[in-house]
Amino acid sequence: MITAYCSNCKSVEIRDLSHAAKFPDDVVWIDLLEPTREEELYVEKIVGIEVPTRDDLKDIEPSARLYTENDAVYMTASLVWKAETEAPTLTDVAFILVGNRLITIRYAHPKSFALFIAALHRVPEEWRSGAALLAKLLETIADRTAEILELSVARIDILSTHVFGDRARKVRKPSNYLEVKLRDIAGHHRLVSKVRDSLASLARLMTFFYTIPAVQKDQATKELSRTVSRDIQSLTEHASYIAGNITFLLDASLGLINIEQNSIIKIFSIASVVFLPPTLVASIYGMNFEFMPELHWVAGYPSSLGLMVMSAIIPFFFFRWKGWL
């Protein structure tokens, strides 16, 4: 789908590709959402540049993501998509500056684009140029990334409360409770990892974007791009801090699982030691030799039972005195 946005913020959805009519002169942003090959060829013919395909966007080499060709500036960044779901992923988005126009090519629906389109009418008229709109769009992407990190921090705090708080209150939980929490921790780690990868690609893009002539000529766009670069750097450091907290939570959860397993093993070990002396007594008097003094003793049976009970009680209280129970 091709959507063209004019300088007055009105959008025009291009549906008829039967003839190659040029875009209106006041079009400043052309958004290609999951374009077909026919739509790509249509834009190439109208604008006069080569449009990257879906396979081109997957290249990870910086030289294939950030370059200038025939007076057109090509930039590709990885954005976080489906951050609110259990399977967040990265989607590659291409940004092309040609003349006074911005062209975006995407095969997903990052929320940052929806937020930017919804607020497009609030962009001042002096910002409605290709480079200025891209700077504003990148600012919205950075803000959305910050929102994702804030959401992740809130969820990790709740998870930490579940892991440590319930244990402090001695709330009974299912035997696999911590194992379930480990899967939740892995999900948060995946999200933060995707955010860090996205921020790394955005940092490279901003470094390249800051040097292009269209940005250097516009002081306001230049200042905004510098601000966005600082925001991305701060978000990268914050993401690293969150990743460290997740690592701590993971190690702590594994430690708690080991403690619970050791407690179970300790109970069985103590039980075996407690019942070992009675077993020894029973074994001695179960040998049934012909000449055993206690075989004809009237009080032999109750005495052996009492000896077995005493041999079990004494180790039990000894372990309690030592604090092993």
Rank of each mutant, 00 (worst) to 15 (best):
L178I: 06
G255Y: 13
A299K: 13
I284Y: 00
E13M: 11
T221L: 10
F318M: 06
A94D: 04
G255C: 13
T89H: 07
R65D: 03
E86A: 15
I264V: 15
E84K: 12
H238E: 12
V195Y: 01
E260F: 14
T279G: 02
F319T: 00
E13I: 11
L151Y: 12
V73Q: 10
T68P: 05
L191D: 00
V163L: 13
P35W: 04
K181F: 08
I148L: 09
L191P: 01
Y210F: 04
Y5K: 08
N245E: 15
D26C: 03
R106A: 03
L120K: 08
L159S: 05
A146W: 04
Y107S: 12
D31A: 10
A220G: 07
N288Q: 00
N258D: 10
A239H: 00
A77R: 02
F95K: 07
L33V: 11
M1Q: 11
I148W: 00
T279C: 05
F164C: 10
V309A: 04
H109A: 15
K222W: 08
C6T: 11
F289N: 00
V27Q: 03
A186Q: 08
T279P: 01
A118Y: 12
I117L: 09
W29N: 02
A203H: 14
V43E: 00
F208C: 08
K181G: 05
G300F: 08
I117K: 12
F291P: 01
K222D: 11
S198T: 00
L79T: 01
K111Y: 09
T227H: 09
D218P: 01
E150C: 14
R122K: 14
E147G: 08
L280T: 04
T145M: 08
Q216C: 09
P315K: 03
L202Y: 07
I257M: 07
K173F: 13
E150K: 15
T89D: 09
E126R: 14
N258V: 09
V274C: 09
K322A: 04
N70P: 08
Y177D: 10
R167G: 10
K10V: 09
K222Q: 13
K194A: 06
E179S: 14
A239G: 01
E40T: 10
L32G: 01
L235E: 01
V43K: 00
E260Q: 15
N288C: 01
I103R: 07
E38W: 04
G99M: 06
A131T: 05
N288F: 00
K181V: 08
L133I: 05
E150I: 14
A200M: 09
D59I: 12
A299M: 14
D56F: 14
V51R: 06
I270T: 04
L151Q: 15
F318H: 06
L178T: 02
